[in-house]
Amino acid sequence: MQRVNMIMAESPGLITICLLGYLLSAECTVFLDHENANKILNRPKRYNSGKLEEFVQGNLERECMEEKCSFEEAREVFENTERTTEFWKQYVDGDQCESNPCLNGGSCKDDINSYECWCPFGFEGKNCELDVTCNIKNGRCEQFCKNSADNKVVCSCTEGYRLAENQKSCEPAVPFPCGRVSVSQTSKLTRAETVFPDVDYVNSTEAETILDNITQSTQSFNDFTRVVGGEDAKPGQFPWQVVLNGKVDAFCGGSIVNEKWIVTAAHCVETGVKITVVAGEHNIEETEHTEQKRNVIRIIPHHNYNAAINKYNHDIALLELDEPLVLNSYVTPICIADKEYTNIFLKFGSGYVSGWGRVFHKGRSALVLQYLRVPLVDRATCLRSTKFTIYNNMFCAGFHEGGRDSCQGDSGGPHVTEVEGTSFLTGIISWGEECAMKGKYGIYTKVSRYVNWIKEKTKLT
């Protein structure tokens, strides 16, 4: 034993070699072989497995989906700052455009905790909710729209109204504003409101030439003092309507412009014939205590009207009353817009006519005020429907199939267009061939041609 100890002390290297040989010859039971080890760690190889990531292109799944990435790591994937920024906006807080917040056709661009709407022409605001041009839906104005110097929408209202708090709607500024039905039992019968379409306001006024200088022999019209197929109006439903009495009662109609003036057809009036105007009328054979009678003290036909040349060209006249009318729910003026808007309103496509005229061709006159909704007829169809001249200051309205029309005794009465609950004068009943005849239409004086003249002559002093 002493000898062994001496050998170990003198030859430590020998001992180490012996131990190493023993270990190498022993069977290893701690580690699995290569094949079995792979069965336990069965993990798919990654895209760049075996390579240094710093030297390969980034992978979106590896960089940002398996674990949260930084902007720089995302930049490695896209290799483009702009594309990385677009991805980053949604990656950080989701897609803010998912709810489609942009209105009126706006395009949404996502941002971090926010979004941006790219608005089409005519709109602005956070969600493109603000109209900035009158060309689109009248700028959301209830009545009139004008573009300011910086191309912003400025709404306005006709006389007797003021802008509401929203700067879009119009509200009454006087007790009985024009064009409004205020009798409670008839307010439910107000005709369907007309909503502004998209309009090209630059070209809204037709490029028409008034044929002022045409000389033409007097034409022989049949029954051209021209509501057939209409309905009984309720008291106060058309408070701007008046009836004219002269040699015979209810020979023509008219509309209240203001307390002192009536507008009617020029062919209705004769110099030297006494005319009485009755406002607030409903049943011409009954006294309903809503009527107001006034005498006409002055007749002003349009300066281009000449019955000797043509009885229905420039067929418009103004009547001055001896005493002002007292405005109330049964006696209310009709609204008159400017030339541009009167023309736009007419193009809405349908209007209402009213009167006490004959209820059928050569038949009896109506006792109760009649009204009828009539569609506008395109000019080409209008011209083809008659052998008589249709001037540019006239328009056609009615039904091709016949059966409904204005008729004798309705002449001078109103053709009105309702705009968001307020009625505007767009025409004056003038003439036609018979009444409600198939293929024939009622012919009306186009008020847009005469609004400046009306307003100039009827100013209240």
Rank of each mutant, 00 (worst) to 15 (best):
T276G: 06
H303S: 07
L52S: 15
W118P: 00
C396Q: 00
L319K: 00
V377E: 02
E142M: 09
D405E: 15
R43Y: 04
N113P: 04
R449P: 15
E456H: 08
L103I: 09
L60C: 04
C407R: 05
K311T: 06
C157K: 00
N138E: 04
I40R: 09
W261Y: 08
N5W: 08
A279S: 03
G106N: 00
I297T: 09
I300A: 03
E142G: 08
I344V: 10
E320G: 02
E86H: 14
G421D: 05
H303W: 08
C145T: 03
T218G: 09
R364H: 10
L52C: 06
L346W: 09
S49C: 04
M437D: 11
I17C: 06
Q241M: 15
L460K: 12
Q143I: 02
E53P: 10
A380M: 09
L211H: 13
P197V: 13
K274P: 13
P375K: 14
L60P: 15
I136N: 10
T342W: 01
V451G: 03
E35Y: 09
T422L: 04
D200H: 05
P101Q: 03
Y441S: 03
P175Q: 06
N313Y: 13
I390N: 14
E401Q: 11
L20A: 04
S184Y: 11
R83Y: 10
V359N: 12
D249R: 10
E286Q: 12
V4G: 12
V451H: 03
L41M: 09
G125Y: 00
R364N: 15
S406H: 11
D249S: 13
I300L: 10
E320C: 02
K39E: 13
V181N: 05
G50V: 07
I428A: 00
E67C: 04
S184P: 09
F196Q: 08
P301S: 08
N343H: 07
G413K: 05
Y341Q: 15
G357Q: 15
V416D: 01
G442C: 14
P44R: 05
R180T: 04
A436H: 11
C119I: 00
I17D: 02
D249C: 03
E72D: 15
T381P: 05
T461H: 15
L189D: 15
K457E: 10
R294H: 02
W118A: 02
V331D: 01
T381L: 08
C28P: 05
K387C: 03
N38L: 09
C155R: 01
E171A: 10
R298M: 03
E98S: 14
F87W: 11
K274W: 04
S156E: 11
F348M: 14
L14F: 13
K152N: 13
D150R: 09
